[in-house]
Design a protein around this nucleic acid. Structure first.
Lengths: 108, 108
DNA sequence: TTAAATGTTTATATATTTGTAAACTATTAA
DNA sequence: TTAATAGTTTACAAATATATAAACATTTAA
């Protein structure tokens, strides 16, 4: 029986991309570090919920957290996350374009 | 209020990466088209379950399905999916390496 | 026209994810 | 020391995702 541990670990890290709030956070954090309150302002997500998403992303190795005084700061672990995310965005856009074409070419 | 539709659509497509079986399927289909039964043999997943995962990936725009006689064939919609997937795998490997280092440097 | 082969769909039980509210902790300022 | 600020944790209900089994549909061969 083949070992599937790698697939489980891989899908675990990909789960960080599987939620709209977390996608928005990755988008916002592209290339820069922001504080919890800045992220909250930009996303308008309830703070307890935001904290849960951020801590999930930290424990999945997607984000790095730094605490300074009362504040928490977050950034992407590596720019690769932003890159992977943008590639998937391109796939989405391409799919939408294809859908558009199909609809535009409909005869009725 | 900011429109979050794009984040919802984006996360929907990323959900295709959020499961170990689906990651394995993406891995297997890299650069080539395979039949249902070939995928089943390689993954050892129950056929009804495999069919569900494949059809979810088709409706999320990750896979293209082609039917020929009794058989179904599947391939990635675009090589970008394989690329994004590989980048996330690299992130995982880097994270594991960091963990290793931390453990190796532990004094006790 | 039956039967076999190849998937697909549906029903269902279980597990996981998610959002909200409330309680809590830690740091700083008065 | 008290209070305020900033964020975290916990408890819980609702929504979603998942695996299994059984029923179903479609194509081909006998």
């Amino acid at each position: 029986m083949k070992d599937k541990t790698l697939y489980v670990l891989h899908s675990n890290i990909c789960k960080a991309l599987a939620n709209p709030i977390r996608i928005e956070i990755i988008d916002i954090l592209n290339e820069k570090e922001l504080s919890f309150s800045e992220i909250q302002e930009l996303t308008s997500v309830l703070k307890s919920n935001l904290s849960q998403h951020l801590s999930m992303m930290v424990s999945n190795g997607i984000l790095i957290q730094r605490k300074e005084g009362l504040n928490s700061y977050f950034k992407l672990t590596t720019e690769k996350i932003g890159i992977a995310c943008r590639i998937m965005r391109e796939v989405l856009i391409e799919n939408i374009e294809k859908q558009k074409e199909i609809i535009n070419n409909l005869k009725y």
